[in-house]
Amino acid sequence: GTATVSGHHTLQLSSLLPATVCTHSTIVENKKRLKVVDKHGPCFQLHKNKTSKAPTPAEILQQDEYRVNSIQSHLSKNSIETDATTIPAESGETIGSGNYIVTVGLGTPKRDLSLIFDTGSDVTWTQCQPCNACYKQNEPLFDPSKSTSYASFSCTSQQCSLLTSSTGKTQSCSSPASPCQYGVRYGDRSYTIGDFGKERITINQSDVFDNFLFGCGHNNQGLFSGAAGLLALGRGELSFVEQTAQKYNRIFSYCLPPTSSSSGFLSFGKADKVSGVVNYVQLSSASLSNSFYGLQLEGISINERRVSVISSSGTIIDSGTVITRLPASTYRALRYEFQQQMKQYILIKSPVSLLDTCYDFSGNDNVEIPKLSLLFSGGTTVELDSTGVFYALSESQFCLAFAGNSDNTE
């Protein structure tokens, strides 16, 4: 749906709009890759059951704000604690859930479950029977009593102490035989609470992991769009990445699909030889929380001309945040130059406050848009795909998918 003409991309607008039909995957499916689909799109097959209504773009952006607020709060808390100062930040919450779904097997016999994957989370969980309070999910609930490989832990177990160190929450332990309880509350007030246990998790026929530590949720509420739970790909020691480090050596990759009707992939371990160059950027964690994947983004270029410089304390890459957030001054510089390059189109007042550079593309099937690239420390440049520039609010309103943090010093 895209082409490059005279230094610009030609973008087919329909590729950004919500689709009703899932297109056949063009990815060569292989046993090392899990298929990734949009949580709200037609390729999440279970949407056909209509047990959950797809949110509007405005609702998705509101959720995105909750997630970003949680991330900023979490990071502020960490940095402020280092400085031995106190701020009134919300604590005890992790960030909101992500936007992309993969299917993995859990238990013996294996039950396939559609889980949201999230690089910002450390605890994997699924809704379990018996359920005291559960949101609607499209697959039957996982029943640990019907799995021969499930076991729970007591609150005095070593595994339970791992949970305490990972979530920062102290276990209440009335007696040594009391069950180990986990609880995760997300930034949008969604939550999951239940038994902490271990189970067999199956990625594919040859990649099966016994004793995988996860949460079996008996009280769960939130906007999880019919998914059965969450696959945590964060940096904590309970994340899937850490628990499978012996086999996969802490290497994984994903490709997020360009449209809601197409699919991407999630794979673990060193990749087979692929076409195309991988441009690497140094991972930086020292100045950020241990929970997130930090990079040093230094600037942004439009049509190969650097227009904004980032001098903030760092950048994290997150699979669950929708809109890229930049320091306020960086965003202003990007916005100015972007608007200059898009002068031939009608700029409209945004109906969504988060996004303030929106265009009315009525009457156009395709538009020409400038090339945007991310400039990282070490000289690495990553050019964005043409589908990675705009966020569609409606069939005629398309907004630059960047936003500024409210203040550089906030």
Partner: peptide, 30 residues
Amino acid sequence: IAILGNVQQRRLEVVYDIGGQRVGFRSAAC
């Protein structure tokens, strides 16, 4: 803190090599 969101990651393969302390990007991967 800036956050690189998922719209900007579309079609890029994002490779997390935690042991190697690096994150890679490959264009037009899906």
